[in-house]
């Protein structure tokens, strides 16, 4: 697998660093990592920087993760980019909402690097 560009969206900078570390521990080579503290900031980043993968929290100020996923689905430039939710909101209804909004995977916090690998690798391998 070639190096990828990832966008990590979480209002916690600590969690963004942990997610990045988990990706590296999962053996995913990162060409570039973009960070955003909420959905609106992430949309701005996406419009300037194409990425191969998005990892996104749900509970965030300004624009939450579910709204962000819905907005990304309407962006031509982000078409086909897999989105994995990483969140404390682990209920069935949140999972259903996220997946029906366009997310391709769901990881509940707290999480291990192995769980990140299990969710991320299949969607990257399927990517055209």
């Amino acid at each position: 697998m070639s190096k990828i560009r990832a966008l990590i969206v979480d209002d916690s900078s600590v969690m963004r660093k942990i997610v990045e570390r988990s990706l590296r521990q999962a053996g995913i080579e990162l060409e570039e990592v973009f960070e955003a503290g909420h959905g609106a900031e992430a949309l701005g980043t996406l419009s300037d920087h194409p990425v191969d993968l998005i990892l996104c929290d749900i509970n965030m100020p300004v624009m939450d993760g579910l709204e962000f996923v819905r907005q990304v689905a309407t962006m031509e430039s982000a078409k086909g980019v897999p989105i994995i939710m990483i969140t404390t909101e682990g209920s069935e209804s949140h999972v259903v909402q996220a997946l029906s909004s366009g997310a391709r995977g769901y990881i509940r916090k707290p999480f291990t690097a192995e769980q990140v690998k299990e969710q991320v690798l299949p969607v990257l391998e399927k990517k055209p």
């Binding site: 916690s12 509970n59 404390t88 682990g90 209920s91 209804s93 909402q97 509940r108 916090k109």
Partner: peptide, 16 residues
């Protein structure tokens, strides 16, 4: 945040 989320996810019937 993770403690609160993990706790409520363990309580059956709360759902979303």
């Amino acid at each position: 945040n993770m403690i609160a989320g993990n706790f409520k996810n363990k309580l059956s019937g709360l759902g979303g």
